[in-house]
Simulated assay, not measured.
Amino acid sequence: MIRRFGESMKTGQRYKLRPGAYGILMREGRVLLTHQRAPVPEYQLPGGGVDPGEGAIRALHREVFEETGWAIAAPIRIGAFRRFAYMPEYEVWAEKLCTIYAARPVIRRGLPSEPDHRAAWMAPEEAVEALGNDGDRHFLQRFLQIAMR
């Protein structure tokens, strides 16, 4: 059973399954997040949807680069969660199946190419507080508890 965060399914609403890959990215004691200005301003774990025919790891590399400008290495799957949400940029109600990876940001290759996104480095505690969804926050907190042992 995959844990759900956020809103429950709305009765009678059809949802499109949208798998995605997201990264917990730490370097020199700081966490790399993406800040998305639109449609709703919020901090997120970098990542996004897995395109048809694309694997989750490839999607993670692509999405992190598009949203932060950073290349990553050594992704390791640490868990997954579901959330139900309206995605205004696609005009679709989605069941988002979010797979979370820990990876190492290795080099900044440029600015984010994804519109309305910018890279943001934060102290771990600040990053936990800033994240805009409970699933991202849960996995970052869990990761930090294990990493700080």
Rank of each mutant, 00 (worst) to 15 (best):
M26E: 15
G79N: 13
P75T: 11
P52Q: 11
V40C: 05
F81M: 13
P75G: 08
I78E: 15
G29A: 03
G79T: 15
G55A: 00
R58N: 14
T34F: 01
A73Y: 04
R37Y: 06
G23S: 06
P46T: 01
K16R: 14
P19S: 10
K16N: 11
L17M: 13
R27E: 10
L25N: 00
G48H: 08
Q44N: 11
T68R: 01
V31L: 02
E89P: 02
E66M: 05
I24C: 00
R83G: 07
A59F: 07
E54I: 03
G20A: 12
F84V: 14
I72R: 06
L32M: 04
M26T: 06
R18Y: 09
G55C: 02
P41W: 03
P39T: 08
Y22H: 14
F81A: 13
E66S: 07
R62A: 14
P46G: 05
L25T: 00
L45G: 06
F81W: 14
A21W: 00
G20I: 11
I24M: 00
R14V: 10
L60P: 08
R14D: 14
P88E: 09
L45V: 12
E66H: 07
P19H: 06
G29S: 03
R83F: 05
R18M: 13
D51I: 00
I76P: 01
P52H: 06
G23R: 04
L60K: 03
R77C: 11
E66F: 03
A59C: 12
A74V: 07
P75D: 09
L33E: 08
A85R: 14
R62H: 13
G20M: 06
E63P: 03
A73T: 06
P88S: 09
I78T: 09
Y43T: 05
